Amino acid sequence: MSIQHFRVALIPFFAAFCLPVFAHPETLVKVKDAEDQLGARVGYIELDLNSGKILESFRPEERFPMMSTFKVLLCGAVLSRVDAGQEQLGRRIHYSQNDLVEYSPVTEKHLTDGMTVRELCSAAITMSDNTAANLLLTTIGGPKELTAFLHNMGDHVTRLDRWEPELNEAIPNDERDTTMPAAMATTLRKLLTGELLTLASRQQLIDWMEADKVAGPLLRSALPAGWFIADKSGAGERGSRGIIAALGPDGKPSRIVVIYTTGSQATMDERNRQIAEIGASLIKHW
C-alpha cells in the first residue's frame, strides 16, 4: 500500500482519535458579512469528516447552483462504474471539434489522439474542462443518470439537468442544476469515506481534487503551510461562485467545507476574496 493510499485508508482512524471539535460562531459572522459585502445569498456548511456531524452552517438547506462543483460527483459516478466493471479508466475516447464547448483548455489539445477516461476526469476536476465533463456525462448516460446515481446514494436534493455550459445559467428560483450545502457536503463525505467506492477509487477521487489547479484564489489562499486540501470550485452566471473541499491540518483532511453564493453584482475577484476570507476565519478558529 502506498503512503497516499495509507493516508486515505486511515482518515477515519486518525479522526477518531482527534480531540473533540467545537464550532466557532466567528466564522458564521464572516459568512454573514460576506453576504453584506456581496449583496447576495451565501450558503455555508462545515462537517466533521469522521462523524458527519454538522459543526457550523448557514442557509444549509437553500438551493444554490452547483456550477462546476458537480464534476466531482460526476467522476465519482464514473469511478463507481469502474468498480462495477462497467468502465475502464484506460479506455480512450475520441471526439471532434464539434464536441468542444466553451472553456476546454485540455480537451482542445487532444482532438487528434483523444483522451482516456482517467485523463478526462483529471481534466474535468483539476482544470474544470467543460468538454471533458460533457464527454464523461455521455459515458454514464447524461445528466439524468448522474441525478439517479445521487438518488441511489441517498441524495434526493442534488440534481443535474443540463450539460456544460448551460448548467451554469443560475436563474433565480430555478431548481435545475442545483444542490443544497448540506446535501453536497453529505454526498461528498460519502464519496470520500464511505463504502460506495473502493479504496482505490476513493484515493483516485481525492487525488484529482488535491491536484486542483484553478481554485488557488479561494480556500487555498488562506491555508497555512502543512495543511491538506482537496477541492473543486465552480463559477456561473449572475454572480455565482462555489467551492467544495476536504481539508485539515497535519497533512490530512478532517472536515468537509461547502460554500456557495449566487445573485451578486460583485466582480469575480471580490467573490473570490470573500470566500478566501471565510476560509481564513475557519482556519483561525479551527
Rank of each mutant, 00 (worst) to 15 (best):
residue 34 A to M: 07
residue 140 I to N: 14
residue 96 S to D: 04
residue 106 V to Q: 11
residue 141 G to R: 07
residue 203 Q to R: 13
residue 273 R to V: 12
residue 239 G to A: 09
residue 26 E to L: 09
residue 220 R to W: 06
residue 118 R to Q: 14
residue 275 I to A: 09
residue 127 M to N: 01
residue 158 T to L: 01
residue 232 K to H: 13
residue 214 V to K: 02
residue 129 D to K: 05
residue 196 L to A: 07
residue 269 D to T: 09
residue 231 D to C: 06
residue 191 L to V: 02
residue 193 T to G: 06
residue 53 K to Y: 04
residue 167 L to K: 07
residue 197 L to Q: 02
residue 53 K to D: 08
residue 210 E to T: 13
residue 227 W to R: 02
residue 60 P to W: 04
residue 57 S to P: 08
residue 179 T to G: 12
residue 33 D to M: 08
residue 284 K to H: 02
residue 43 G to H: 10
residue 151 H to V: 04
residue 206 I to H: 11
residue 170 A to T: 10
residue 186 T to D: 01
residue 62 E to Q: 13
residue 249 P to W: 10
residue 72 V to G: 06
residue 104 S to Y: 04
residue 24 H to V: 11
residue 45 I to P: 05
residue 237 E to R: 13
residue 82 V to S: 09
residue 260 Y to L: 04
residue 235 A to T: 08
residue 98 N to K: 12
residue 135 L to A: 08
residue 81 R to C: 09
residue 236 G to L: 09
residue 195 E to D: 03
residue 270 E to L: 15
residue 62 E to K: 06
residue 184 M to F: 05
residue 279 G to D: 13
residue 63 R to M: 02
residue 36 D to R: 04
residue 183 A to V: 05
residue 73 L to W: 02
residue 165 P to F: 10
residue 165 P to G: 07
residue 181 P to D: 15
residue 73 L to D: 11
residue 85 G to L: 01
residue 228 F to Y: 15
residue 232 K to F: 15
residue 73 L to N: 09
residue 73 L to R: 08
residue 189 R to Q: 07
residue 39 G to T: 14
residue 202 R to G: 11
residue 267 T to E: 10
residue 273 R to T: 14
residue 51 S to N: 09
residue 282 L to T: 08
residue 77 A to F: 08
residue 33 D to Q: 05
residue 190 K to M: 15
residue 81 R to A: 01
residue 138 T to W: 10
residue 180 M to H: 00
residue 213 K to E: 06
residue 235 A to F: 11
residue 233 S to N: 04
residue 256 I to M: 12
residue 242 G to D: 14
residue 33 D to G: 01
residue 234 G to P: 03
residue 131 T to Y: 15
residue 241 R to N: 08
residue 54 I to R: 03
residue 173 N to I: 13
residue 153 M to L: 13
residue 241 R to I: 08
residue 271 R to D: 14
residue 110 H to F: 11
residue 37 Q to F: 06
residue 47 L to W: 06
residue 116 T to F: 06
residue 178 T to P: 09
residue 92 R to I: 00
residue 103 Y to N: 00
residue 283 I to H: 07
residue 164 E to Y: 13
residue 197 L to N: 13
residue 199 L to S: 04
residue 276 A to M: 07
residue 250 D to F: 05
residue 79 L to I: 01
residue 274 Q to P: 03
residue 129 D to Q: 15
residue 102 E to N: 01
residue 162 R to G: 12
residue 160 L to W: 10
residue 239 G to P: 04
residue 176 R to P: 04
residue 151 H to Y: 05
residue 66 M to D: 05
residue 278 I to R: 15
residue 248 G to I: 14
residue 268 M to E: 05
residue 230 A to I: 13
residue 286 W to N: 13
residue 258 V to W: 12
residue 242 G to M: 05
residue 239 G to K: 12
residue 92 R to W: 12
residue 158 T to Q: 06
residue 238 R to Y: 09
residue 272 N to M: 14
residue 99 D to V: 03
residue 49 L to Y: 13
residue 138 T to P: 05
residue 259 I to N: 14
residue 282 L to P: 07
residue 251 G to C: 11
residue 107 T to L: 02
residue 166 E to S: 11
residue 92 R to S: 11
residue 26 E to A: 02
residue 41 R to A: 12
residue 53 K to T: 02
residue 168 N to F: 06
residue 115 M to D: 04
residue 274 Q to K: 01
residue 62 E to P: 09
residue 146 L to S: 02
residue 85 G to T: 01
residue 250 D to E: 04
residue 181 P to R: 10
residue 69 T to F: 04
residue 47 L to N: 02
residue 54 I to A: 07
residue 255 R to S: 06
residue 264 S to V: 03
residue 147 T to A: 14
residue 237 E to K: 07
residue 210 E to W: 12
residue 55 L to Q: 08
residue 180 M to I: 00
residue 25 P to Y: 00
residue 106 V to S: 01
residue 253 P to Q: 12
residue 33 D to W: 08
residue 147 T to W: 13
residue 24 H to F: 11
residue 230 A to E: 07
residue 212 D to N: 01
residue 75 C to H: 11
residue 255 R to D: 06
residue 255 R to V: 02
residue 225 A to R: 01
residue 120 L to Y: 00
residue 124 A to N: 04
residue 244 I to H: 11
residue 73 L to H: 09
residue 122 S to R: 14
residue 29 V to K: 11
residue 41 R to D: 12
residue 231 D to F: 01
residue 235 A to N: 10
residue 186 T to P: 05
residue 98 N to D: 08
residue 170 A to K: 01
residue 187 T to K: 00
residue 277 E to S: 13
residue 139 T to N: 05
residue 102 E to D: 13
residue 144 K to T: 08
residue 215 A to W: 00
residue 224 P to T: 05
residue 215 A to E: 04
residue 284 K to F: 01
residue 191 L to T: 13
residue 232 K to Y: 11
residue 244 I to E: 10
residue 118 R to G: 13
residue 67 M to K: 09
residue 51 S to Q: 09
residue 209 M to L: 14
residue 81 R to E: 07
residue 221 S to H: 01
residue 25 P to I: 13
residue 108 E to D: 13
residue 269 D to N: 08
residue 137 L to S: 05
residue 194 G to P: 06
residue 182 A to S: 04
residue 35 E to M: 08
residue 120 L to G: 08
residue 169 E to Q: 01
residue 275 I to S: 13
residue 187 T to L: 03
residue 257 V to C: 05
residue 201 S to R: 10
residue 200 A to T: 08
residue 168 N to Y: 08
residue 75 C to A: 12
residue 197 L to V: 08
residue 170 A to Y: 00
residue 150 L to E: 01
residue 191 L to I: 14
residue 260 Y to C: 00
residue 112 T to H: 03
residue 76 G to V: 06
residue 160 L to M: 15
residue 142 G to W: 06
residue 121 C to T: 08
residue 89 L to S: 02
residue 65 P to E: 01
residue 134 N to T: 07
residue 273 R to D: 15
residue 25 P to R: 09
residue 197 L to K: 12
residue 74 L to Q: 09
residue 281 S to T: 08
residue 65 P to H: 08
residue 84 A to V: 10
residue 181 P to A: 12
residue 97 Q to A: 11
residue 79 L to K: 01
residue 249 P to H: 12
residue 139 T to I: 00
residue 216 G to R: 06
residue 234 G to C: 07
residue 272 N to K: 02
residue 253 P to D: 14
residue 179 T to E: 13
residue 185 A to E: 07
residue 257 V to N: 01
residue 141 G to F: 15
residue 214 V to N: 02
residue 285 H to E: 06
residue 95 Y to A: 01
residue 250 D to R: 05
residue 155 D to G: 12
residue 212 D to A: 14
residue 97 Q to S: 09
residue 77 A to P: 10
residue 124 A to K: 13
residue 93 I to V: 14
